[in-house]
Amino acid sequence: MPPISRGFHGRRQTEVDPSRLPPGQYATNDFPVLSAGPTPHTPLDEWSFTVGGAVKEARSWTWDEFLELPNEVVTRDIHCVTKWSKFDTEWRGVPVERLLEGTDPWGKFVVAWCDGGYTTNLPLADVLDGQAWVAYEYAGEPLDPEHGGPARLLVPHLYFWKSAKWLRGLNIGEQDEPGFWESYGYHNYGDPWKEQRYWSD
């Protein structure tokens, strides 16, 4: 039994609606910056976003074209596997189903791939039906590079390592291909409500 450090409580938010907090999480007002590597800096005039792989028709957009796409502002709670949750985060982004329109995918899996080499995998079904966006604004401002700008994937119903930063494309596949953290032992799916942090959870 470790000694109690009298009066210590950390920076957690203490007045919290418990029904919004998945098991093992605590709420924060901060927005911690986590990363597997250095922040990439792709100039916007060199940036493009691609949907490809097991699709009948691949699609690609420049930054200017991307900003012309129908987009929306959404407010969601986000949950990091390192145990912090942040409520009511506000994002502007393009719903992923919009990006897939007309591509006619026959694969059931997606790999999100990014500047800097990061990848993460998801079932295609988890990025459709209002569950995922490619987000480029946070709290009303252009998305900061340290938080994944110019654009990142936003999939709030899964642990936030699935919301890949510095996103450059979605590759549809017929096989499930574990991404970076998944291949090192993190859970393949990552549902915070089932506390799916590691591969054996």
Binding site: A36, P38, Y198
Partner: peptide
């Protein structure tokens, strides 16, 4: 680097050295 887990990288070329979960 601290992400979901920990990542060690070469200080010269940033190549991946180790991942700690």
């Amino acid at each position: 680097y601290r992400g979901a887990g920990l990542v060690l990288r070469c200080p010269n070329c940033r190549d991946l050295a180790a991942v700690i979960v």
